[in-house]
């Protein structure tokens, strides 16, 4: 018998992130997450349709407060997320490395890129109105002003493929949606949910109000169709809808979304070839905005 007691591993229980809290799946079920070689890493909660519906409720409840904050304040909050992420850089690098099967240096570079992307989008919050809105010339004695407003609740199928999808890709779809004042329900990448679930812990400690971001891990074929058909979801980002067939495939999701007139962002033609380190551009920022135009009489 050894005189030095072997220390027992303290393994992390990964949980969903819904409404600012960390519930287990209501089903009580988990699924095995493996690394690129098929070795067991952790158990992730198997989020269900009911979990998704609860998340939509939480997201809806958060819309008013989040959309109502000033753009400047939203920028500060998003910057705070980057700060918190920076503090847990090593943990995320390790999770990204095992999730995507890449080396520690590449993984660390991806985490740095993800942090920088938060900062980049944080800077956009109070600038997006300048490029998406403006004063319109009209033939009459009126000021005519267009301003962008958030669409509301956005359902996001997080990237499931492409270089850097597990964290950088995830950040690249969440940050633009919430930067403009939307709230999101995210279906995490089914095979690589660990960085997403850990991101929930970062968001919970960085002034982002509960319900603004909700993260569900589980089968995309369960979660995505629920988001697509849910009448209280206003827009749908299908970036991670990579299934070629079945209810989780992009065409089926688009058809379901059309029933309730959702805005839809379609996936790339070849999601597997996507490199998330490429500069993102403003497309995603401008995807989940509604334009409000007011006419104001001049000279009164």
């Amino acid at each position: 018998m050894s005189d030095v007691a072997t220390r027992l591993d303290v393994l992390k229980t990964y949980k969903l992130y819904v409404g600012g809290k960390f519930p287990r799946s209501e089903s009580g079920r988990v699924y095995e997450v493996t690394d690129a070689k098929g070795e067991w890493l952790a158990n992730a909660p198997l989020g269900t349709r009911k979990d998704t519906r609860d998340a939509v409720l939480a997201a809806r409840a958060a819309v008013k407060g989040w959309a109502g904050t000033t753009a400047y304040n939203r920028g500060q909050v998003l910057y705070r997320v980057a700060e918190m992420l920076q503090g847990r850089r090593e943990q995320f690098a390790a999770e990204v490395a095992v999730s995507e099967g890449i080396g520690p240096k590449k993984a660390a570079a991806l985490v740095d890129a993800a942090i920088d992307r938060w900062v980049w989008y944080a800077g956009w919050t109070d600038k997006v109105a300048q490029i998406a809105g403006g004063a319109n010339p009209v033939a009459g004695p009126y000021f005519n002003l267009s301003t962008p407003e958030p669409t509301g609740v956005v359902g996001i199928v997080a990237p499931q493929a492409g270089y850097g999808h597990s964290l950088l890709g995830l950040v690249s779809v969440i940050a633009p949606a919430i930067a403009t004042g939307n709230t999101v329900v995210v279906a995490a990448a089914a095979d690589a949910p660990l960085p997403a679930l850990s991101l929930g812990e970062v968001l919970a400690t960085s002034d982002v109000p509960g319900g603004v971001v909700n993260i569900i891990s589980g089968r995309t074929a369960d979660i995505a169709p629920t988001l697509a058909s849910h009448q209280d979801v206003n827009a749908l980002d299908l970036t991670g809808a990579i299934a070629s067939d079945g209810p989780g495939a992009a065409p089926a999701l688009e058809a379901a979304a059309a029933d309730t007139l959702k805005r839809v962002v379609r996936p790339e033609l070849d999601p597997f070839a996507q490199d998330w380190t490429n500069a993102p551009g403003t497309d995603r920022l401008l995807s989940f905005l509604e334009t409000k135009t007011v006419w104001h009489p001049m000279g009164i």
Binding site: R53, V56, R60, T226, S229, H230, Q231, D232, V233, D259, T260
Partner: peptide, 9 residues
Amino acid sequence: TGRYSGPDY
């Protein structure tokens, strides 16, 4: 309908 509804409806 099989679809989750929302307070908008």
